[in-house]
Design a protein around this nucleic acid. Structure first.
Length: 544
RNA sequence: GGUCCCGUGCCCGAGUGGCUAGGGAGCGGUCUGCAAAACCGUCUACGCCAGUUCGAUUCUGGCCGGGACCUCCA
């Protein structure tokens, strides 16, 4: 099946058509490095990391993801902190890489920065000016060498093309303009290509005087440099459709007379309790704020369990710091519990937050790794022989079993990760049946261990391939499970030593066949959130 | 105001003009000293009203409800 992707430009799924056979150029708008990344960023980069992982199966992909390191917000923050803006930016580039590593997001092939592409950016603006798509306006800045502001002249390009991506019309754009229009612009739609330097701002010399680039021009210039005039895929969050990507198209296509990108992919938002994530609402979480609650893989799993174009909702349950009852939104706003009428601080509230979706995702990740660990243990004990394939062994009349094909088909259909995860589940289920020697329930025949080992070995390979595409289950199972268990225990505020002591106490009771005592200890453990499992291999435990 | 999207079972979440994804919870089993895990089985669906059709959750129109964007935003 050929890969079909939804193109925001045409609003439909279309077959991916690489410009050069076997190669793909992908550009995804990166972050403005003035602060730590939030969960919304996690989503974009997990989504495109996963997409690129899949694309690399068949194409030599050049993945470009930029850093905006020259920007109003960076300047503002660096002024507040009396810090060099580029140093501040560099610091948050490092933080970005750390956060991404935690959720399995690989570095892009090329990670260009504005500050190191000033030449390309300036050349781009000059070319636009030469072609009549840019005009200068006298600066209002008091800085000595500040020359002109430069704007893009939107009306010189076909309106239909300018508005195609966003699907709007000119009149509505005008009437909808809510911001005070800069009177110096020829047209309200015009946007800045170059901003003249203001007092105290970092600035570069240019033919227009001291200043710095506008927001959109960097991506046009950097994409051109690293991927060429026309490239295959351009992606980002759906909020970038207008104005950012719209203006990128304007700049690039007016300068080159060619299409900028063939396929435009946009991912949906993150909501918290069905509200758009926003700092003003206070429902705003950085990626690392989640690490006390879940593993990076759990977050990644959760983000991929919804299709990339839809919005993802995080349920947030907050309980009263005093009485522990679940707080309705009003109480959270008023910082007072209506049940026990105790007041509390916003910080105290943050300590009492739970994310049920992440907890569910965590258990799914645990399920994946436990299954992998079981396979590994089985294969360690049993040598495989030649035998039938999984498909042969488990297909039913009219119901073929080929999870890998299902998995790939799902990806081929606009990167349908939820559907791919369903295929993963299918294989995990059958695998667990095999591992426990109960394949008879599906095949009506009992297999011998070497044959079973052969099937499990195949399964292990397929699971690894699936995991490599989703970015899940790629770690060594046993050690992952230990780390996950330690984290879950920490979330519950339970000491490992306490658990181990209780485990010993229970073992002793069992030894003496004092089952009442053993069960009592088990009950204590369950209260601590610890679940005991007696297996043929010994006693195991996990954290609920 | 304009543009666009969405409304699936207790919850989350795919998808399709007829062949009832998947996960969680619940219930019933297998297994177990008891449990748990794992596995098996099972109950809950397609906002409302029309139309097209042999047949619509899936297509069309209307309505109701929710959301996003038009401004920095992933």
């Amino acid at each position: 099946m050929a890969l079909r992707v939804f193109n925001s430009l045409t609003r439909q799924k279309e077959e991916l058509r690489p410009i050069k056979p076997g190669k793909l150029g992908v550009y995804v708008c990166g972050v403005t490095v003035y602060d730590l990344c939030h969960v919304g960023h996690a989503r974009v980069y997990v989504v495109f990391d996963t997409i690129v992982r899949f694309l690399r199966r068949h194409y030599a992909v050049t993945y470009v993801r930029n850093f905006t390191d020259v920007d109003d917000k960076i300047i503002r923050r660096s002024t507040e902190r009396s810090e060099d803006p580029l140093a501040l930016a560099a610091h948050f580039v490092d933080e970005f890489h750390a956060d991404m590593a935690a959720i399995g997001v690989a570095r892009a092939d090329i990670e260009p920065k504005v500050s190191t592409h000033m030449e390309e950016i300036l050349r781009f603006i000059i070319e636009l000016e030469d072609k009549g798509f840019a005009y200068r306006v006298k600066t209002t800045s008091t800085v000595q060498d500040a020359g002109d502001d430069v704007y893009f002249r939107v009306k010189n390009m076909p309106a239909a093309r300018y508005l195609q991506l966003s699907g709007r019309n000119l009149d509505d754009m005008m009437s909808g303009a809510r911001v005070a229009v800069d009177e110096r612009k020829e047209d309200p739609l015009d946007f800045a290509l170059w901003k003249s330097a203001k007092p105290g701002e970092i600035a570069w010399d240019s033919p227009f005087g001291k200043g710095r680039p506008g927001w959109h021009i960097e991506c046009s210039a950097m994409a051109k440099k690293h991927l060429g005039i026309t490239f295959d895929i351009h992606g980002g969050g759906k909020d970038l459709i207008f104005p950012h990507h719209t203006n990128e198209i304007a700049q690039s296509e007016c300068n080159h007379g060619e299409v900028m990108a063939r396929h435009w992919l946009h991912n949906g938002f993150i909501n918290f309790n069905d509200e758009k994530m926003a700092k003003s609402v206070g429902n705003f979480f950085t990626i690392r704020e989640l690490w006390p609650y879940c593993t990076g893989e759990a977050l990644r799993f959760f983000l991929l369990s919804t299709h990339y174009r839809g919005d993802v909702n995080f349920d947030v349950v907050t309980s009263c710091p005093s009485c522990g009852v679940e707080l309705p939104p009003a109480d959270q706003t008023e910082l007072r519990c209506s049940a026990c009428s105790q007041a509390f601080t916003r910080e105290a509230l943050r300590q009492r937050v739970r994310f049920p979706n992440l907890e569910e995702a965590e258990r799914r990740i645990q399920y994946i790794y436990e299954t992998l660990a079981r396979i590994d243990a089985y294969l360690k004990k049993n040598a495989a022989v030649d035998g039938p394939s999984l498909e042969f062994a488990f297909s039913q009349p009219g119901e073929p079993f080929h999870p890998w094909e299902d998995f790939v088909d799902a990806f081929d259909d606009d990167f349908n990760t939820p559907k791919a995860i369903a295929a993963l589940n299918d294989l995990l289920r059958v695998t667990n049946l095999l591992v426990s020697g109960r394949e008879k329930e599906l095949t009506t025949q009992k297999l011998k261990p070497p044959v079973r080992a052969r099937l499990l070995s195949e399964s292990r390979g397929v699971l690894a391939n699936m995991g490599a595409l989703l970015g899940l289950g790629e770690q060594e199972p046993t050690s992952f499970l230990m780390r996950q268990r330690a984290l879950r225990l920490k979330v519950r505020g339970v000491d490992v030593k306490t658990v181990e002591e209780l485990m010993q106490e229970r073992a002793a009771a069992k030894q003496q066949k004092d089952f009442n005592r053993a069960d009592a200890v088990r009950a204590t453990l369950i209260e601590l959130g610890v679940e005991v499992r007696d297996t043929p291999e010994g006693v195991e435990w996990s954290v609920l």
